[in-house]
């Protein structure tokens, strides 16, 4: 039974379905929640799903983490580019959330609103 779960195809299917479900959990939160922090959180969950999908679908079962010595055979390592990309993306996402949160705090001070549904100063 354990062998069944260890085949690359099965792991691939688990990763794809799992990250897809996580993505839709985030999308669901984005569309149904009202508190601004929960909106940001849902966006963060969606992003995590994309990262998991990327790293998960490109990892080789028998490969090792990309930390090498001079003479190493390069084919036994995991692809390092996805790791570098996701590292960049995580930091950027965090910066965006910090900024968004500071907008929200300042807006709350002026108007007392945290509900995104009621943000309609400019309705005509």
């Amino acid at each position: 039974m354990f062998e069944f779960f260890n085949s690359p195809e099965v792991i691939n299917i688990i990763v794809i379905i799992g990250s897809m479900l996580l993505f839709f959990v985030g999308l669901f939160g984005l569309l149904t929640q009202k508190h601004i922090i929960k909106i940001f959180m849902s966006i963060a969950i969606m992003e995590t799903a994309v990262y998991l999908f990327f790293i998960g679908s490109l990892f080789k079962l028998d490969a090792i983490a990309p930390i090498m010595k001079v003479a190493d055979d390069t084919s036994k390592f995991n692809d390092p580019i996805p790791h570098a990309m996701i590292l960049t993306a995580i930091v950027i996402a965090m910066a965006v959330f910090a900024l968004g949160v500071s907008f929200a705090i300042e807006y709350y001070k002026l108007s007392g609103k945290t509900n995104i549904d009621t943000m309609n100063e400019m309705r005509h």
Binding site: T74, D79, P80
Partner: peptide, 12 residues
């Protein structure tokens, strides 16, 4: 063949 393979070869 992904770009990562080329980079791994260049890395050392």
């Amino acid at each position: 063949e992904r770009a990562g393979d080329g980079l791994l070869k260049l890395n050392s």
